[in-house]
């Protein structure tokens, strides 16, 4: 990557204010995304991946705040930006697609009006120019009969169409950064594949940087260049997607990979065989230990895991870093 990264997260921490003091939600998260590349944030619910996205967008709910670190969008500190500057950044230079397209679209405006709204607010386009660009965007996200659909209300469209409209709104101003929070979870599998293809194609055209939030690494491995695995608000493994998927080094990442029954056509599945499961569950907010938060579910736990604080990420291979005292061994077979 020759160009500077579009987004840099530098030691970001997010905290939630409670009656009994501040509770850490995300701790010491660092990563960067370059122009035209994609990073996937992977983890179970409650691991802090959506809060990270909202922090970048400056949309943290009440009570949450960035308690440390910096978020740099093209070298500009987003956290320190004034409210009007934030509004100028959101939707224009960075934007976001949400999981549920039905609740993210306004039911009383046509989809054309909603796409045009972003353009009029951020690009100072007139009504007509914005409407024309909205139509272009609908065509770009491959909605058939776009001339008619531009006048449709969200309820008249299927789930897949609505998510395409969301993508059109998000990309209307050609942002540098797009955050997609589980963009296909609510969609059918064949439509999911279509939406991912569309995202990849538009990314190539506009060289947008994408942060993809997901709980299933397998689903995004095709389009994510890098991956960061979060557990209980901490990044426990980070690296190039191919490398991490082929040889996860953290026991949690490895557990995540094998506990999903992936489709294996042509293979006589060992029916009724129990899946390799990770016992227990993620420690709830406010009850995270300073030692490795995964230690109570881990099969490789040692005495040092229970006495020493969770280690920071350290690089084990050129494109892979892991935060574990007893990582899995890297096989050196060629």
């Amino acid at each position: 990557m020759s160009s500077d990264p579009v987004l840099v997260l530098d030691d970001l921490s997010i905290a939630l204010a409670t009656i009994s003091g501040e509770v850490p939600v995300v701790e010491h998260l660092s990563f960067s995304v370059a122009q035209g590349s994609t990073i996937a944030l992977v983890g179970e619910s409650g691991c802090g991946k959506s809060m990270t996205a909202l922090a970048i967008m400056n949309l943290l709910p009440q009570g949450f705040r960035c308690s440390g670190g910096r978020i740099l969008l093209e070298s500009e500190d987003v956290v320190a930006a004034t409210p009007s500057r934030r509004r100028a950044l959101r939707g224009n230079r960075m934007s976001m697609i949400f999981q549920e397209p039905m609740t993210a679209l306004n039911p009383v405006f046509t989809v054309g009006e909603q796409i045009a709204e972003a353009l009029r607010a951020h690009q100072n386009l007139g009504r007509r120019a914005a409407a024309a660009r909205a139509l272009d965007m609908l065509r770009a996200v491959q909605i058939p009969a776009a001339e008619n659909r531009i006048k449709a209300y969200p309820h008249q469209l299927s789930g897949g169409m609505r998510q395409r409209v969301m993508i059109a709104i998000a990309l209307a101003c050609r942002p540098k950064l797009l955050i997609a929070d589980e963009p296909t979870t609510a969609l059918d599998v064949t439509v999911q594949a279509q939406v991912f293809d569309l995202l990849a194609r538009l990314q190539e055209e506009m060289s947008t940087a994408i942060i993809l939030i997901t709980h299933d690494l397998g689903a995004v491995a095709d389009i994510a260049d890098d991956v960061a695995v979060l557990y209980a608000g901490r990044c426990i493994e980070q690296g190039a997607t191919r490398v991490v998927m082929e040889q996860p080094l953290h026991p949690y990442t490895a557990g995540l990979m094998v506990c999903v029954p992936h489709l294996q056509p042509g293979v006589m599945a060992a029916r009724h065989r129990l899946l390799a499961e990770i016992p227990g569950m993620v420690p709830p907010l406010g009850q995270r230990p300073t030692i490795c938060a995964f230690s109570d579910r881990c099969t490789r736990v040692g005495n040092d895991c229970l006495s020493e604080p969770q280690p920071p990420l350290f690089t084990l291979a050129p494109t892979q870093a892991v935060a574990c005292l007893h990582p899995l061994q890297r096989e050196t077979t060629a």
Binding site: E44, S45, H215, D216, G255, L256, C259, V260, P261, H272, L274, L275, A276, E277, I278, P279, M281
Partner: peptide
């Protein structure tokens, strides 16, 4: 359900069936 929890529940269903 999350994938890790999904595996637990699928295993529970298999055990109960057996």
């Amino acid at each position: 359900l999350d994938v890790a929890i999904q595996a637990q529940i699928l295993n529970l269903l298999l055990r109960l069936q057996a």
